[in-house]
Design a protein around this nucleic acid. Structure first.
Ligand code: ZN
Ligand code: ZN
Ligand code: ZN
Ligand code: ZN
Lengths: 166, 166
DNA sequence: TGCTATATTGTTATATTATAACGTAACATC
DNA sequence: GATGTTACGTTATAATATAACAATATAGCA
């Protein structure tokens, strides 16, 4: 099981954090190159910070991390980078947390579901086609055209049920 | 089809708005009496305003409506009433809108799903057991204990696909 | 009834998240 | 290099929500 695969669900305590980050950044660079997108130094750094946090992180947390490393940054600095990363599927916004997290399948333009642990703060990204199809069925019955789905489940992850924060 | 039934999905343009409000308030009064909850004048009025808006409405919109009718009100005034109504299942919070909407099945402590029209602003509340079971299955596979579910689908409702706002 | 504990509301200040508006710099294309 | 476009810097402000403490109303009981 490689780092990418592991990060699709709740990571174990002993997993190689840095490998996750490196791998995700490499994927993002490749993707942007393919798509002709400009992954500027700022955007690259913001994405790196999001992955390095390794759990959903707020815009102002990111802002603080940027300023602490000497960069001039104001709210628009971070929000513009977040917008770019969101638009191009490199990160997700978790509505119920007002926080941002790296996407495990960048570029696929998928609808994701999140399982969010209230103890350790980790979020697992799923892409369960079954949920999609049930929502689609309900939408059809209502005559509703789906544009955007938000599926976020809060609770306690398996690691945290056994002991304190993994 | 009565007002209650109608309000479970997207209401038609010609439906009896006032009947919906009256019916919902009556149900809330009954429920609070049964449960020994104090539906004070303020809480009653806030719930009435939420239903009268008849679509998800923001806390500060409600605040403005309260002050316009002469009541002294500050943010905590409205947020405390919203907290009471949320805790007791009389309203729902729609995370993706930062807005509040009356519950169609007060007191049932159910997990609801919302289909939100981006054209007319109406939200339809569903309680599809199928969605619940699929989420429960994923949770079980992850070893995840579910506390709270957020399922919000944005798009265009059937009325709005035919013509402008119903 | 009057007393007391509790719940509710009022009031002021502040935290948190996000965007508007406008100017400057970097980049790409010709 | 001129020109149009994209990205970034900067200042101010909007929108949503909570903290902290005082005043009032209510409920339960002596
Ligand atoms: Zn994703
Ligand atoms: Zn956990
Ligand atoms: Zn409901
Ligand atoms: Zn509509």
């Amino acid at each position: 099981m490689n780092a990418s695969k592991r990060s699709e669900q709740f990571p174990t305590a002993d997993h190689d954090h840095q490998t996750c980050v490196t791998h995700a950044l490499q994927e993002a660079e490749d993707f942007c190159l393919q798509q002709g997108l400009r992954l500027t130094e700022l955007r690259h750094r913001v994405l790196e910070l999001i992955w390095a946090n390794h759990q959903p992180v707020g815009a102002y947390d990111l802002l603080e991390q940027l300023t602490h490393e000497g960069r001039k940054a104001a709210p628009p600095t971070i929000y513009r980078s977040l917008d770019f990363l969101l638009e191009n599927g490199l990160i997700h916004r978790i509505t119920s947390l007002n926080a941002y997290v790296g996407c495990n399948h960048p570029g696929l333009n998928h609808a994701a579901q999140f399982f969010i642990c209230e103890a350790c703060g980790q979020a697992a990204e799923l892409d369960d086609a079954k949920i999609e199809s049930v929502i689609a069925r309900d939408a059809k019955r209502l005559g509703f055209t789906v544009e955007k789905r938000t599926v976020e489940v809060a609770g306690i992850c398996a690691h945290c049920k056994q002991g304190p924060h993994p």
